[in-house]
Design a protein around this nucleic acid. Structure first.
Lengths: 348, 348
DNA sequence: TTGAAAGCGCTAACAC
DNA sequence: GTGTTAGCGCTTTCAA
């Protein structure tokens, strides 16, 4: 039989035999070829090619204790998650960077409280080298789970749970929400606006709270009546806008905590016959193309590099993995804050 | 510390020692406990519990050749994919069913032609037990890849590539697009409509061609002028509607190949002062809640159980895996067509 | 029913 | 530089 039991894939042994070298040499070549003489390297490479050899992942993992896989944890109840374009971009960044690191993306879809036990078991089972999670709600069980099972984890978004800045600190990647908000408000001031309102996002998400803080940083003595509460939906933006207009009809600008709410606000402004930006200037946040470019007028907004944040999450995780064991590693979570950029369009 | 070298997880050996039995016995208990006497089973169970033993996946895979993982292949260029609610539902179904089968979901995100080589290598590397893919474009390389690397694969959607019904046949799960279309058109006929137009979807997707066929099945001698071409977008639906109205102003009903196009058509009908359903009855396809329930009037449409299709894809794959080796298995791809259901709302 | 022992395919000391 | 060898942790005959 030339092809020993087709379907059974060739092993290192087979390659070694074919190249006339030892298994160890083949292993070295397959793993980069350091310290092997060139002619041998080539002979081995040829044998690998001819046999169509592919390393057995399980065998390799068994000895190296590296899985070449990272879990991405998605907590379903929290979000529309998948159909959220924000999320899609972030996962794309993660996927790309993982590929660059020769790692696979294992998707863990958490559906309810009962699911956490399964997740914990999986994470604790050492199937993956690390995990990537998203900081959504503050009462999430995830932080305590990853801590308990000791799997290196990087969060997307600054965590807001109690103790997140202290003993329960975790490494995370987040956009500079506060700085971006400041820039947006300063821009409005620079354009001569004086009564700048803010439509805030949900109180239990750090991103919206940070944006609110940024607004307040600049509007030091802001009239509290200029701040209305939304929940990141288009509808809530419209509602908040109506409320603001009622409370403070003299406002001349609005900074919304995201584009969707800005779009809702825009709708209401137009319904009331107010011109944007002439009567009221409007700035959003996120630069979600499907929203910010589609409105009329298109939105001036604060852009964050969402895909880049996804990539950074992976890089941060990989760095953690490589430090493994080094003493000072554990101390510094070493989070990353990525810069934002004001994108000027017609709405302000 | 009772915990020997914290971080090093206990092995079978450790459990065996603690329970005072052999590794083999522990293995048996861990894998179901068949053929082990009850008292021993309990002793082992207790040891497992006390030590917090979790089987090493790599070691197990190495000997069983089972990965407990399935790849889900997403071809990015084809689609907006992730932000597509259709897709989200399907992946949710897949994720749930995979969990039920104790399998993990490995996400393979294909970004361009060059990526296929990577995918092929991964699939061929035996990292996963099988794969789930989606049949989008007819010139996709995927079918030939999965065939070449011999990884069991189930497709979502009936494949349309050349030879798909013959030598390149693959198992797939699809909705009964043709039957659903028939039902929609028959329903319109039953409501007394006579000049029923159709807005068709892209010509290179079997789902839209099947729906067109269903339309034709019922409208045997349909006036070709009653069929307009769209591409599944809202905009294309509006465009097609305008075209139809110009060509056949007397039409009294429209069956659109998806809800998005129906929504575009609806917009145009109203712009022209035509009442729906009084002047023109309208039926969509998909029952995408965010669209069909949001229009005014809400759409009568053909529902498909998208999540169920995702689950079925997994079941079909698992069946294939369990048959592995049995002779007759290879012959019958054994695809599944799931029924559709007409959902009556106000538009027809 | 239980245990002993032989690998699964690979890496990494350690020799040579 | 290259080869030899000892496992990684588990399942699975085969004997007892």
């Amino acid at each position: 039989m030339p092809d020993p039991t087709p379907g059974a894939r060739p092993t290192l042994e087979a390659v070694a035999a074919r190249a006339g070298v030892s298994r160890a040499t083949v292993s070295r070549v397959v793993n980069g070829g350091e310290g092997v003489r060139q002619p041998l390297v080539e002979r081995v490479r040829r044998a690998v090619e001819e046999l169509g050899y592919v390393p057995n992942h399980a065998a390799r993992t068994l000895v190296t204790r590296r899985n070449g896989a990272v879990a991405v944890i998605i907590a379903e109840p929290e979000f529309r998650i998948f159909s959220d374009p924000f999320f899609e971009q972030q996962v794309r960044g993660i996927s790309r960077e993982l590929t660059a690191h020769d790692s696979q993306l294992v998707l863990l879809w958490v559906e309810g409280a009962g699911d956490y036990e399964r997740i914990a078991r999986y994470l604790g089972g050492g199937h993956v080298d690390g995990a990537l999670a998203f900081s959504v709600h503050n009462d999430d069980e995830l932080p305590s789970i990853v801590r308990r099972v000791q799997v290196p984890t990087v969060f997307g978004g600054r965590p807001g749970w109690p103790g997140a800045s202290g003993e329960l600190a975790v490494p995370y990647v987040d956009a500079d929400n506060r700085g971006g908000a400041r820039e947006a408000v300063r821009y409005l001031l620079a354009r001569g606006r004086e009564r700048i309102a803010h439509i805030a996002g949900p109180r239990d998400q750090t991103s919206s709270m940070d944006r609110l803080d940024g607004y307040r940083d600049v509007m030091l003595d802001a009239d509290p009546g200029l701040v209305a509460q939304g929940d990141f939906t288009e509808e809530s933006g419209a509602h908040a806008m109506a409320e603001l207009l009622e409370r403070r009809p003299g406002l001349d600008a609005v900074f919304a905590a995201n584009d969707l709410m800005a779009s809702g606000a825009l709708r209401v402004l137009r319904e009331r016959g107010l011109r944007v930006p002439e009567d009221v200037a409007l700035v959003g946040f996120d630069d979600m193309a499907s929203v910010a470019e589609a409105t009329d007028p298109p939105l001036t907004t604060v852009r964050q590099d969402i895909e880049g944040m996804g990539r950074l999450m992976v890089r941060l995780l990989m760095r953690t993995l490589n430090q493994h064991g080094e003493p000072e590693a554990a101390a510094t979570p070493g989070s990353v804050i990525t810069p934002t950029e004001l994108v000027r369009r017609a709405s302000a």
